[in-house]
Amino acid sequence: MTLYDDATLVLKAYAPGPGADEGQAELRQAYLDHLALHGDGMWKACGAGHLTASALVIDPEREKVLLTLHRKLRMWLQMGGHCEERDTTVEAAALREATEESGITGLTLLPGGPVRLDRHPIPSPCNWHLDVQYAALAPAGAAERISEESLELRWFGYEDVAGVADTSVVRLLEATRSRL
């Protein structure tokens, strides 16, 4: 099975959880339509946009989240990025990105598939990121390590996230908390 096939199956199975913001079902269909129209819709080279994978990292006590101050965007975000040829599943891409950007080994994704979807514009030539968002639990004793993609990594209490991050991260946190 290809990553494209896996993404299609993941999106077909995606069901927004209780309390999900409106528009998740429509966004799911927009992602599926995008893949149907673009055989290269998983890859950065797709000019119409491409799927990305991310994960919100949660501390073992489930009281804080680890955010990265993105080097290029200069925004506090969850860990995530582009799918790569070596990724066999969207879930594996999200876990790889979270591990690389947090420096934490032993992360485990919350069961149940993606937590939510988020589409956001990016500069040309790509135009759109169609992000498939997961949540990952850090193991006890986890120590983060900054990557070259970050200016800083920091743990934030749930109540502090809205003060530093945009609404997409806040919505991801809300959807994640409903699964914990």
Results as ranks from 00 to 15, higher is better:
Thr99Gln: 14
Glu85Lys: 15
Arg154Asn: 11
Pro123Met: 02
Ala98Leu: 08
Ala92Trp: 00
Ser147Leu: 02
Glu101Lys: 15
Ala92Val: 01
Arg145Phe: 00
Glu97Trp: 01
Ile122Asp: 04
Glu152Gly: 00
Ala98Glu: 11
Asp131Arg: 14
Val132Trp: 11
Ile104Ala: 06
Glu84Gly: 06
Ser147Ala: 12
Thr88Asn: 06
Leu153Met: 11
His129Met: 03
Trp76Phe: 02
Gln78Met: 14
Asp87Cys: 11
Asn127Arg: 15
Pro111Trp: 06
Ser150Tyr: 02
Ala135Gly: 02
Arg86Ala: 13
Glu149His: 13
Val90Asn: 04
Ser147Phe: 01
Val115Thr: 13
His120Phe: 12
Leu110Arg: 12
Gly112Asn: 11
Glu85Tyr: 08
Ala138Tyr: 08
Arg86Gly: 07
His82Gly: 05
Ile146Glu: 06
Gly80Ile: 05
Glu148Gly: 15
Ile104Asn: 13
Ala98Phe: 07
Pro111Cys: 06
Ile104Gly: 10
Ala136Gly: 05
Pro121Trp: 06
Glu148Asn: 14
Cys83Ser: 10
Met75Ser: 03
Pro114Val: 03
Pro111Gly: 14
Ala143Cys: 10
Glu101Phe: 07
Val132Cys: 13
Asn127Ser: 10
Leu73Thr: 09
Met79Thr: 05
Trp76Tyr: 08
Thr88Val: 12
Pro139Val: 07
Asp87Ile: 04
Leu130Phe: 15
Gly141Glu: 08
Arg74His: 09
Thr99Lys: 13
Glu85Ala: 15
Pro114Arg: 05
His120Pro: 00
Ser124Asp: 13
Thr89Tyr: 10
His82Val: 01
Leu109Gln: 08
Gly113Cys: 02
Ser150Gly: 15
Ala94Pro: 10
Pro111Tyr: 03
Ala138Phe: 05
Gly112Asp: 03
Trp128Ser: 04
Arg119Pro: 05
Arg145Val: 01
Thr88Pro: 00
Ser150Arg: 04
